[in-house]
């Protein structure tokens, strides 16, 4: 069987979802990445999952991310999918405003997304609509903020010799 190329996947996705729905196409060290709107996530991942040739049936990881300067798309989720049969990986990225960071859950497709989504909720406050048990996982339940957001810098509380200005940063 011939190896599936990233161009094939892109061509297939664009013919299926239209050229405007799939954007931000890129490649990083051989891994294809696309950006989609939050409403396209589930149809897209479901399409990739059940596709007869691609078979992206393994969810490697799911990472939350915060870009405070990107107005209206501050919070993002990166889905790392892996087609074990073809040994091809793809990153699917989606962004939502920080005031209303609602993403659809993909726990229906991948059981493993359960804790991954809980982790993204725990650290970034991303709400996964339809998640069966969306609560904090690694931090304590009483915590009232989302610690991985960029407005909470890690500080060396006791050190005064590493002031960024002195180093021209």
């Amino acid at each position: 069987m011939e190896k599936i190329t990233n161009q094939q996947i892109i061509a297939d996705l664009q013919s299926q979802f239209g050229e405007t729905a799939i954007y931000g196409i890129g490649e990083s060290h051989g891994i294809l990445q696309v950006t989609v709107g939050t409403d396209t996530i589930v149809p897209l991942i479901h399409y990739l999952y059940q596709h007869s040739a691609f078979k992206f049936q393994f969810l490697t990881d799911l990472a939350g991310i915060h870009f405070p300067d990107a107005k209206g798309q501050e919070l993002g989720v990166i889905y790392h999918l892996h087609s074990l049969e073809n040994n091809v990986r793809i990153w699917i990225k989606a962004y939502a405003p920080i005031e209303n960071p609602v993403f659809p859950t993909i726990t229906g497709l991948y059981a493993t997304a359960n804790w991954m989504e809980r982790e993204a909720f725990d650290f970034y406050g991303i709400i996964f609509e339809g998640h069966p048990n969306l609560k904090r996982i690694l931090n304590m339940d009483e915590m009232d903020y989302f610690p991985m957001r960029k407005e909470y810098p890690v500080e060396d509380a006791t050190r005064h010799d590493k002031i960024d200005e002195l180093f021209g940063r």
């Binding site: 690694l138 931090n139 991985m148």
Partner: peptide, 10 residues
Amino acid sequence: VGYIHRAFEK
């Protein structure tokens, strides 16, 4: 889980 969470990613 999370009893020895040490915020490595942060």
